[in-house]
Design a protein around this nucleic acid. Sequence first.
DNA 1: TCTGGGGTCCTAGGACCC
DNA 2: TCTGGGGTCCTAGGACCC
Length: 387
Amino acid sequence: MDAFYASVELLRYPQLRGLPVVIGGAATEQDRARSLAHAGRLHEIPLAAFPRLASYAGRGVITTATYPARAFGIGSAMGMMKAARLCPQALVLPVDFAEYRRWSRRFKEVVVSIAPVMEDRGVDEVYIDLSALPEAQIEGGRVLARRLQQRILEATGLGCSIGVAPNKLIAKMASEFEKPNGIAIVQPEDLQTRIWPLACRKIHGVGPKTDARLQGHGIRTIGELAARPRAWLLAHFGAAHGAWLHDAAWGRDERPVVTESEPVSMSRETTFERDLHAVRDRALLGQIFTELCEQVAQDLRKDGYLGRTIGIKLRYEDFKIVTRDHTIAEPTQDAAQIRRIAGLCLRRAPLDKRLRLLGVRVGSLLKGEEARLRTNLGRNPHMASLF
DNA sequence: TCTGGGGTCCTAGGACCC
DNA sequence: TCTGGGGTCCTAGGACCC
């Protein structure tokens, strides 16, 4: 989906179309008061009532920027303060995940109604396996892609870009070619002309660290990566990573489109408005800690999961991250239990530096029924020995 | 004026078991 | 004094993605 969060916001605030708008940060009292005052007619809120980046004071990053804002050099993951320098007049809206999830469900319903083999890749992205659809054979899939775009637009008013290719790796890259509202068809024979000229960073899975290492070896483009002997990549990047890099550069990817999956972990974390000290801000920290545990427990119960591995995450003022976790015998979704175990984890972490972020995670998840079955087996000595 | 929140997967060492 | 080879589970950190 193109500029998804921002595009969803423009649906309820059409008066912001064409303007530089950024989404980021949490809702403030002012935001809530404004929405409340105009409940049911958000489109009537005057422009002057929206806060500008110039007056934004909090911590945080841009999650999405409208295309007019991107023209000023603003992009995702950019700090708010830096963005404010680039375009102080840009309007700021708080992130509203609940709303984005609602629109996410709607566009995915449209996709599944046309092409049922869909892999969910988050709130604004999917992979679709078109190979069983006869219509995909027409014009290399362009007709089908256009129909998907049109139906999504009709149902939601939201635009998207589609890449059609022989596998997920190339399709993902192709989806970026014609943004926004574009369609790109990439055939196997297009590898050298359309993929090899791209920077290695464009490969889904090559991040800043790998890119820097590649550049250290003088490898900047995917074509330069493909030119390295496979054995050389294995020697310099390890057996698994090296082989993967070589395959990716040659456009090889056999991963299937996965339509079902279970969550592995659930977590809640928060960055404080100011860095907190474990001793001096003990009371406040304890309160936030308990709230995080309660939120995770609520998330678990809402989706019917229990977990055995309870963990914490700390980010210090110097941005260093530390995690501690502990696995218990019986899976839980109980806030007090999670709080107790997480408290033990916290005691094992260094607490001399000031803290910027605190997080609570529950992993090794089991669905409710599995958890009950597991517990019963464990409690019954006859069953336990049988299994 | 730095740098969110919620995830997945991989690696590597140690404990422990057969 | 010199000490196997699997396998699984747990913990911690790190890379990467949306």
